[in-house]
Amino acid sequence: MTKRREKAEVLYDMLSALWADRRGLKPTHLIYKSNISHVRLKKHIDELLENGMVKEGTGEGGHTVYKITEKGIDFLKEFERMRKFMDSFGL
């Protein structure tokens, strides 16, 4: 149970970091900004790519960058709504 709760929040943190910098983030920056391990990043980014919430691109130096998609933005908005509801009940 705790595992899934954490997962939703990790995905939210990752997408928030990508939303804050919409030009795209390198994997190392994403690790740093969403405060997760490399192993977790790999696991979750694959899921986000699969679900179409994140897309892979190439940065100025030819390195891999991740960018948030419209679907990812929708997830972020929905999660923020849920947070508001959760906070209003204080549970």
Partner: peptide, 18 residues
């Protein structure tokens, strides 16, 4: 239903009880 939706996304048991 909204509480149930949150439970499905986050698995927070409190929202299932809500």
């Amino acid at each position: 239903f909204y509480a149930f939706k949150i439970y499905r996304s986050t698995r927070k048991k409190d929202f299932f009880y809500l």
